[in-house]
Design a protein around this nucleic acid. Sequence first.
DNA 1: ACTGGCACTCGTTACAGTCGAGTGCCAGGA
DNA 2: TCCTGGCACTCGACTGTAACGAGTGCCAGT
Lengths: 340, 340
Amino acid sequence: MGLDDRKLAVLRAIVEDYVSTQEPVGSKALVERHQLGVSPATVRNDMAVLEEEGYIRQPHTSAGRVPTDRGYRLFVDRLSRVKPLSPAERRAIERFLVGAVDLDDVVHRTVRLLAQLTRQVAVVQYPSLARSSVRHLELVPISTTRLMLVMIADTGRVEQRLVELPAPVPADDVTDLRRLANEKLAGARLSDTPPLVQALVEEVPSELRGAMTTLSTVLLETLVERHEERIALAGTANLTRGGLLDFQGSLRPILEALEEEVVLLKLIGETEPSTTRVLIGDENEFDNLRAASVVSTGYGPGATIVGGLGVLGPTRMDYPGTIATVRAVARYVGELLAQN
Amino acid sequence: MGLDDRKLAVLRAIVEDYVSTQEPVGSKALVERHQLGVSPATVRNDMAVLEEEGYIRQPHTSAGRVPTDRGYRLFVDRLSRVKPLSPAERRAIERFLVGAVDLDDVVHRTVRLLAQLTRQVAVVQYPSLARSSVRHLELVPISTTRLMLVMIADTGRVEQRLVELPAPVPADDVTDLRRLANEKLAGARLSDTPPLVQALVEEVPSELRGAMTTLSTVLLETLVERHEERIALAGTANLTRGGLLDFQGSLRPILEALEEEVVLLKLIGETEPSTTRVLIGDENEFDNLRAASVVSTGYGPGATIVGGLGVLGPTRMDYPGTIATVRAVARYVGELLAQN
DNA sequence: ACTGGCACTCGTTACAGTCGAGTGCCAGGA
DNA sequence: TCCTGGCACTCGACTGTAACGAGTGCCAGT
């Protein structure tokens, strides 16, 4: 009961038409708008098979067909080629990203750009600390018992945290602490720091032991365990396109999911293979997002991956175009990061 | 044609009922649910007057009355007392805010708390740099021609920016630059820095002149002119409560407005008088937000104001409760900041 | 100045009927 | 064997009509 070429062509046509018109597509309209070379009746037979196999469905009897999640999946995997970007889009990307002065700036511009180009919700993960190295650690005395710990990563990320010391530490000792910490940790990948930090505490002169212990706790806690990951979001207004037809009428669950950083990270952060990932409908693990699809990929300077980015939209989305845009933006961002 | 006490009581009753039921309220229902001591017919006469004066309106003939923006305004100004918070709410606030380790942490917790308590969209402005003082400036060499400039403000804000130097500067000179910059600028209010920065460039030894000029440009550009203000947002999912009845069916304009930092700053950032501000319906300047109301106030350690926070919701909102919550949260945040 | 009564308005709901897009199936033809 | 034209059928969308009822405005009476 395999699908022959024509049936696949029919599925492709259904997906394309439905994506662009947002209305169930019938056999007659199909043969009119695509050169299938057969009659509506034949198409109907094919449709019956496609429906039986779960690739399309009828919203109600006597309506046209609509792709199922499974249908989109087949379409993405086997029936579509990634669209090349238009020159206008390429230009838009370049224009948007030049002139960024900051990592913050880069991330914000990227997320807005992505939202604008795809007309969907865009999500960009800041370069993951776990995948970054320490460039420099700075200790700034705020008072005798308080330090501001500032860590600068090679990806440009800067994290800070207030440290309450157990006892007053003179300025000279702070200098020592800073020097020691930098000697041991500068250049180390953050994921490798725990043992180094451990060693650091032990090597330190006894009069600094207390301060260094506190410091190391904070270091590990802040940089390795806690919020660690940051996310930027843009384009939520795009959810309202397609007038409530997408997302079965309620934006509620989607908006709720978008507020959860953990959810977003799961969606775009898992970049094991450095390829583009497409999650269609209920392929993702969150009930709130059953009506949505996510296209995501990793980015980073050169071939390494330091974070993820992607977009979220209705299952009825232009997959080839979206995939192309997401990839292109990721590549440009990578180049931008490589320059710094 | 003034409004006597009973007419005001009727208006108050209409606002309260409409806010809680979300349905136009009729004369009969009014006398049943409030002790007005008069008959429906009398109430109808009062309503006719209130309508003529523009405080209420009928969505259509033979429907109940609904308050107008003007009606809400009168209600807020003269007919309502700020509700004291319930002990449960007070406890929630304290529980939510203890344990914050960071300015970032404080802001994020606050905005989520505010969204949760008011069940609306919450907005918190980070402490404004313009209202902060420089606590410390740090210069971290990244390469011979690149520095990372990190500024720590007394409010806990940390801003960083990459500086491209016109020529290589040896490490010792960086130390000098750092020392000079801190001597001149530490403790200064950021709004007062421009002349100080200017003076700094002129005092510097000639071999550092070039580097210092670049540095000062970046300083002024980043800290005074550019993004300067930051905003945190939460609770957008609350916009979907009241099933599309609020906001006349489309969240679009609201979501668009919420993406514009400038808009949000205008809404909650203007805290000239340190009192709570209520913008009802089209009282705000943005067309996109004509269907929304904003309750905002300033916050800061002690009596000074360093930033604004507030919530945005449908004009049909519980003003007394929302005002109370916004004020309480602002006060707690102020205390929290004062501790640091 | 308030109240009861009454006619009136108009949105909502229910129901019936028509229309038409789209289907499934079948018999006939390449 | 596969495709096609034809045909009966289904069912949602739309239209028109009628009954209902919440709510109003007005007026005469207390």
